[in-house]
Design a binder for these strands. Structure first.
Lengths: 215, 215
DNA sequence: AAAAAACTGAACTGTGCAGTTTATATGTCA
DNA sequence: TGACATATAAACTGCACAGTTCAGTTTTTT
């Protein structure tokens, strides 16, 4: 989370421990992951594990912190600001969808929700290191595009949130509720294009707006 | 779930047990809920509890089944098919938002996600008794409205999913990640109206379409 | 009012797991 | 070589909790 070096000791096997913990925590959540399993998965003795991390909670938080950083990196190059709206938005939609459909996105999301009671901070940290950052970038892009006359938006925050949600159509709830867990490129394209079409129908102007008929 | 009467014995305190279990399970999930807590919350002895339900898992599934039924009832009168699109959709949006923002909606969602690994069926059952039903009703309404010339939609499934997602804008992720947990009527209206405006901008025709300027 | 069924509380068993301890091994620097 | 840090496996402690048992009480049925 926001803390940096903390009390975590240095040493040869630290990375091993973190990787093992990551694997097991993301797969089984906090309660579902036993420390013995983590030690085994990390090829490390339990005693060694406990020499790095005083208890299970702190190990979990360390993993969560790392995952949030990872997520920040992933959201970095999400929107290319120079393309025209349709291209820029299509690319952004595609990237957003592939992120939350990926095993990484799914697992992190599941753990956040599942552990919301035990680790209330976790959800917030995740939100800020992911969704909130994407939103800022979308808004920044909107403002550029508005000044070019390519978009017309009164409430940029709402527009950004709507776009993000449009990208989840169909896929997200099927994913979350385990109805379907892998999606073809065609399925992703359908949602991405649908999101862009709908978004531009509302917020586009003139020649860069929706070409609904072409579909 | 789909099973009906099963092996569950009758008796005075059955409802008490189920209500206690409901309270505790929805608040703490499966692992987080201890059978002693449930018995206490139900004002019932542990022995009584076990005389109704052979084990914790079955009790949990029984509660989940009941919640799915409850959800089905809640989604029943969601869309009034006779109003014009703007009114019908605004009402639908308002109801959908209030449902998933409610403690009920939040808890059920959280438990589904958290227990997805332990109870893979649960997510699917939930999805079918809630989101999927709402989608069917939306599509039915769309078809009526299309035949009246009020809407123009190529892919009704996509449109329904998009509408549902638009209703989640902003609210949903804040809720799920614990950034914010109560929302004013004004906040809800903003999202509901935004969803309808965007939806009609894409799928509306003629005079019932978006009055974006009036906002 | 007597018999049957449902319920209670409290003590008990067994298990899984977080965290500790110990005795031993390996590697590194002087 | 020896001193010190780091790692290991395995046994151990303590606790929380699912599920059982049972002697005794309350409620329902006839």
């Amino acid at each position: 989370m926001n803390i940096q070096n903390d009390t975590v000791k240095q040493g040869r096997k630290l990375q091993q421990v973190l990787e093992g913990a990551r694997t097991v925590f993301l797969q089984h959540g906090f309660e579902g992951a036993s420390v013995d399993d983590i030690a085994k998965s990390a090829n490390v003795s339990k005693a060694t594990l406990y020499s790095y991390f005083p208890d299970k909670r702190i190990l979990f938080m360390e993993v969560a912190k790392a995952e949030c950083l990872r997520q920040e990196e992933m959201t970095d190059e999400m929107i290319g600001a120079n393309a025209n709206p349709r291209d820029a938005l299509t690319t952004a939609a595609d990237r957003m969808i592939r992120l939350f459909v990926s095993p990484f996105g799914r697992n992190v999301f599941r753990v956040c929700v599942a552990e919301a009671e035990r680790f209330p901070e976790l959800g917030r940290e995740f939100w800020e290191s992911g969704p909130a950052r994407v939103r800022s970038k979308m808004i920044a892009y909107f403002n550029i595009s508005i000044s070019r006359g390519e978009l017309k938006i009164e409430d940029c925050e709402l527009a950004a949130d709507q776009f993000a949600e449009l990208c989840k159509a169909d896929l997200f709830s099927k994913l979350v509720f385990g109805v379907q867990d892998t999606f073809s490129d065609a399925e992703i394209d359908r949602i991405a294009n649908g999101a862009v079409d709908t978004f531009l129908a509302r917020y586009g102007t003139g020649r860069h707006a929706v070409n609904q008929a072409a579909e």
